[in-house]
């Protein structure tokens, strides 16, 4: 418990330790702490920025989806209209075609009827002539009465 030169020795040791601590221990650790602090701050800021960007992107995506949906419904509507038009067109064409076919058929029928009538007339007139020939053979000369027979046959055709 005596005060002796240990006092001086300890003072020197104390000063050296403090000096060393001040020079080599404190600054790097404080620098690291400071650096970490700024890093964390930066990280937080970046996270916030990212979140905002994400939000923006989501908004944009929903917008795009909406647009696409609207476009799709437009297209569908258009297609529906077009399909209706096409059906109408086809219907019209079909009706037209049917009318044409009907018309052709009617003409043919008419023609057929006319030719049938002609042949019938001819046949009937032939029959009439042959009948008349049979009847008249004995008394009437065919050459003599030709004019009269032609007149009758034309009258038959008109009927």
């Amino acid at each position: 418990m005596n005060i002796n030169a240990t006092l001086i020795g300890q003072t020197i040791a104390f000063v050296m330790f403090v000096w060393f601590c001040m020079k080599y221990v404190w600054p790097p650790i404080m620098a690291a702490l400071e650096e970490r602090k700024t890093k964390i701050e930066e990280g937080l800021a970046a996270a916030e920025r990212g979140e905002k960007e994400h939000e923006l992107a989501e908004k944009k995506a929903t917008e795009v989806i909406h647009e696409a949906r609207a476009e799709a419904s437009d297209i569908i509507n258009l297609a529906n209209v077009r399909a209706g038009e096409m059906v109408e067109e086809a219907k019209g064409k079909a009706v037209e075609e049917a009318a044409k076919v009907k018309k052709g058929a009617a003409a043919e029928i008419e023609q057929e009827v006319a030719s049938a009538r002609e042949s019938l007339r001819q046949e009937v007139s032939g029959l009439a002539i042959s009948a008349a020939e049979q009847i008249i053979k004995s008394e009437i000369d065919a050459k003599k009465h030709k004019k009269l027979i032609d007149k009758v046959s034309s009258q038959l055709g008109a009927a």
Binding site: A13, F17, F20, C21, Y24, V25, P28, A31, A32, K39
Partner: peptide, 21 residues
């Protein structure tokens, strides 16, 4: 005291020289 002072210096210096953020 000097041994203990060096213990202090050793560990803190070690931490200081490997200190990173």
């Amino acid at each position: 005291s000097i041994i203990l002072g060096f213990v202090f210096i050793y560990f803190f210096k070690k931490a200081a020289s490997t200190a990173t953020a």
